[in-house]
Simulated scan of single mutants.
Amino acid sequence: MWRAIASNALTLFIVVLVLVAGLLALGRERYAGQGPLADAICFEVERGASMSAVSRALEAQGAISDARIFRIGADYSGKSEQLKFGSYLIGPGASMAEIVAIVTAGGQSTCGREVNYRISVASSEAVLRELDPAQNRYVEVVKFDPAVAAPPAEYVEAAEAADVRWRVTLAEGVTSWQVVDALRRAEFLTGEIAEVPAEGTLAPDSYEVARGADRAALLAEMTARQTAILADLWASRAGGLPYDTPEEALIMASIVEKETGVAEERKLVASVFVNRLEQGMRLQTDPTVIYGITKGEGVLGRGLRQSELRRETPWNTYVIDGLPPTPIANPGRLSIEAALNPETSDYLFFVADGTGGHAFATTLAEHNENVARWREIERQLQEQQEQQQDGSGGN
């Protein structure tokens, strides 16, 4: 009798083991298998949230099929206590295992809203964007220039949210004064700026920041990046350049930056100025004259006068020989690279060609022909503009 009982108990135990093993296998399959999401969603993990609360929210939003399996899987993988707050993009069919990895990885949020404070040559603007999970691209919600307008309601509301990401982006060619002026108006930053950094020493780039970040610390990061870029490119510079120090190369890079917005032209523009220096010619570049007038504090906003081209300032390369004493803007990496590895050419002149680029010439006669063509293009453009104004005025 006892033998029969023992046999039955053993059989029952084996059946239970098989059932448990089957349930575990089924649980692992559901945990690692494709999830129920048909479309991508933005999922927010609130600060201080528990894995239990997150699992219930995911189940309610249809991202997972079973909150218990999700919690057990997270616990088994040792990630139950590793939740990171933020907004995360969860793609269609994401498995529970993939979602656990997403919400515990940390780092920059992959979804939700972002404020990008863009500092450009002509203005600065704060742009609030929100990710459209269905298209996996950011959609602009609102933008404004803090220098001329109060923050709109959508921006004010977003600024109070914990999951909004903040970014400061410097355009190539901005001056250090323009950067400092814009940062002082950025209400999401804190701290005083004691002085304007030396011209050319800030790296045009995009900087991830936190709300309340220190302005001086951000400027220090911009300076560190530019220092590293210049050191890296200086080490791989071409031989025989007509400047002897990284600081002189930075001056040249700033002139290249202000002379062309066409990336493919930078090295060719640099070659013109290198050729001029090597032949003892003056650089005769308008952006240096403008800097001598404005000192980088804003935009001139008009054409240069003949008297200004003749006026002697430390930066007026129509009057002085060689390079000006300082950069005239903060050049980007491509312009620094162009200054340190210019094209090999015989060009000594260039002028706008009407397409956004420039026409290059080796002789003054060729250059004068290019200038005449550009003057004709300017005349035609002016006539078209006047005709458009006349037409609009008659409506």
Results as ranks from 00 to 15, higher is better:
Pro325Met: 14
Thr223Glu: 13
Asn116Lys: 02
Val127Asn: 02
Ala32Val: 03
Thr260Ala: 11
Glu386Thr: 05
Ala361Trp: 11
Arg47Thr: 13
Ile377Leu: 10
Arg333Ala: 10
Trp2Asp: 13
Ser55Arg: 11
Ser271Lys: 07
Ile320Gln: 01
Val45Trp: 01
Ile255Gly: 09
Leu300Phe: 05
Ala9Val: 14
Glu125Arg: 12
Ser120Met: 10
Thr317Lys: 04
Arg237Tyr: 01
Leu189Tyr: 04
Tyr76Met: 12
Leu24Tyr: 01
Ser95Asp: 11
Ala134Tyr: 05
Ala329Pro: 09
Gln226Val: 14
Glu199Arg: 03
Arg56Leu: 09
Leu323Gln: 02
Lys258Ile: 09
Pro314Cys: 11
Pro133Val: 04
Ala253Ile: 09
Asp321Leu: 12
Ala198Asp: 07
Gly112Thr: 06
Ile99Val: 10
Leu83Gln: 10
Pro314Gly: 05
Glu337Ser: 14
Glu114Asp: 07
Glu187Ser: 15
Met1Thr: 07
Phe144Ser: 02
Arg137Lys: 11
Arg276Pro: 08
Arg3Cys: 00
Pro197Lys: 13
Gly86Ala: 00
Gly391Asp: 12
Val100Thr: 12
Ala122Asp: 08
Leu183Pro: 04
Ala161Met: 03
Ala153Asp: 13
Asn330Gly: 07
Ala270Thr: 01
Asp66Arg: 12
Gln388Ala: 15
Glu248Trp: 01
Pro152Gln: 08
Ile293Glu: 04
Arg211Ile: 08
Glu208Met: 07
Ala159Glu: 10
Glu199Asn: 09
Phe144His: 07
Glu383Ala: 15
Glu312Cys: 00
Ala25Asp: 00
Asp132Asn: 02
Arg305Trp: 06
Val100Ala: 07
Asn275Asp: 05
Ser109Pro: 14
Arg165Val: 03
Gln34Trp: 00
Gly22Arg: 02
Glu369Gln: 14
